[in-house]
Write a protein that binds this DNA or RNA. Sequence first.
DNA 1: CGGCCGCTTTACAACGTTGTATCAACGATG
DNA 2: CATCGTTGATACAACGTTGTAAAGCGGCCG
Lengths: 333, 333
Amino acid sequence: MATLKDVAALAGVSVKTVSNVVNGYAFVKPENRRRVEEALSATGYRPNLGARNLRRGRTGFVALVLPELVVPYFAELAGLVLGAAQEHEWNVLIEQTLGTREGERDTLASLGPHMIDGAIVSPEALQARDFGELAPGIPVVMLGEHSVDLPIDHVGIDNVEAARVAVAHLVGLGRTRIAAIGAHPHRGTAAQRLEGYRLALAEAGLPVRDELVATALNYHRRDGAEAMARLLTAAEPPDAVFCFNDLLAVGAVRAAAERGVRVPSDLAVVGFDNTEEGAYSLPSLTTVAPDKAAIARAAVDLLRRRVDDPERAPEHVRTPFSLEVRESTRGGA
Amino acid sequence: MATLKDVAALAGVSVKTVSNVVNGYAFVKPENRRRVEEALSATGYRPNLGARNLRRGRTGFVALVLPELVVPYFAELAGLVLGAAQEHEWNVLIEQTLGTREGERDTLASLGPHMIDGAIVSPEALQARDFGELAPGIPVVMLGEHSVDLPIDHVGIDNVEAARVAVAHLVGLGRTRIAAIGAHPHRGTAAQRLEGYRLALAEAGLPVRDELVATALNYHRRDGAEAMARLLTAAEPPDAVFCFNDLLAVGAVRAAAERGVRVPSDLAVVGFDNTEEGAYSLPSLTTVAPDKAAIARAAVDLLRRRVDDPERAPEHVRTPFSLEVRESTRGGA
DNA sequence: CGGCCGCTTTACAACGTTGTATCAACGATG
DNA sequence: CATCGTTGATACAACGTTGTAAAGCGGCCG
């Protein structure tokens, strides 16, 4: 592998002159520039980024820390972050937390100080809170959960309002026994969506029944199916359900179908995340659609600004969302 | 950020002694070891991986190059590769090709020689062929496509046989007008699955009808739906369809449903990849199930061995698969 | 007692790059 | 003609780490 030294020797100039050419320094004699460029392509020189970074103190890597890639929302988001990062000439290192905090702590602690310029973190459960101490000094942008008390940049939608809109839509269909799937003891977003759920019910003068609020410890299809199965055994089963993500909704739809409950006529279903899967499922899912591209872009932009100026005040960017109304709440009753 | 020098100063020993302690060198006087360890934790020392790697010539990074993370198969695979890589103390850098080769070439060419120890590549279209020249000298393991002529390590299932089994299953249900969705001019796997399809038909004494073989330029849900819509306009529409991945199958199922064609009674559907989505869709998808965990493990293992010994002969690892029979081919006419 | 060996530590160089200081050549200015 | 500023090139040091060679210090053996 050719180094600056090799190129310099071939071109008959000093190492620094080659470096200058490579970095576009203006004052190089045309003659020398030509010779260097020739030597560069002759040797197929590629700068050693490791060495360059060591010298410059930047690495060109950012970490994207998220729970699981198998969750389509995160996969879609990761894809968009990859794209956005590319425009900043950043390479993305993906770390899966899988819910466990220890492994996470280790990787980030060892990787943290030197190998990454910053991190975009989609926190699960408690992680948001103690992230500051976990990665001291690393520029971090947080996704999803909005913890105003933390002095950390943050991007996300208004979860309370989004949930309220979703449930209000169900109310507008005339449903009265509206269930929720996705309550979670430690997840900030879960608390916020539950809050929006309660708000919408209150606005409609409907009671909040505890037996209609189902907990989901993970947000996978299986959990949605199990929760729905439980809800359907109630004396008075729900006529609508708001699921805190699309996977839960997919599971819920299946559990309903397996028990002969028809969607949307017997049960209207709303999901969250607007994954492509939900748009193609049978029936297609009405869902809260966060602008994922905007989230990815905002996160990377925010991280860029934080890296450039570590002292700036933390910013909270609120990205837009919309409600995609599809078959799972259309027609029927 | 503390460096070896800082720690050495604090402990009153040389930089190298600290380095020795950090790296577990045996011959350090207990007294010194203790002092160094104290200084280490007092300063919260973290080795600068960039510097270490520059010195050692290894980076601890591997690239995972794949078409798109939004395709669930790749998301699931990526998750598994991340896990497998962790056991080798590798960090994974994910690159999306999005089908375009230029961007791909650039990233890998610049990243290639110095920042990654190797790459696991899931090639799309032509990429397999010219990958050797694209990333000269980088240890590479190829996924999916089996090009025996390339002197490159490779992991994958027997696509011809898998497709044959899938279509044979449809034949076994008594279907006679069996369509295929996913033919592609440049994709190696597409050619192989088509081959298996033809084989199974031939074995059953069924003709291969060109009008029943649908091309799909991408393997997204939309493409499956469009292809199915075309197939259903035929004079004699198919009574079964073998889709080259689950996304195509999901799209096909939806297109069928929108036209009142029932699955599986009117149309039996088989997918490929065994994504979770297919297991929960309505109806759930019969699908070819490659052992994804085995693929991920084999790929990382193979890469490890290649990195350790660049001269070894390329190996082709064939991972197992099975056919998951579900609702989309169960019961019905 | 001299030489050798094993343990322990250290100085030094090197990985490949870039910032800084320096120097030389040159034309312009007073 | 002396001085200055601009242009162009270079040597050197440094980023933080580790491999190498070597040296100091015992003790053991001949």
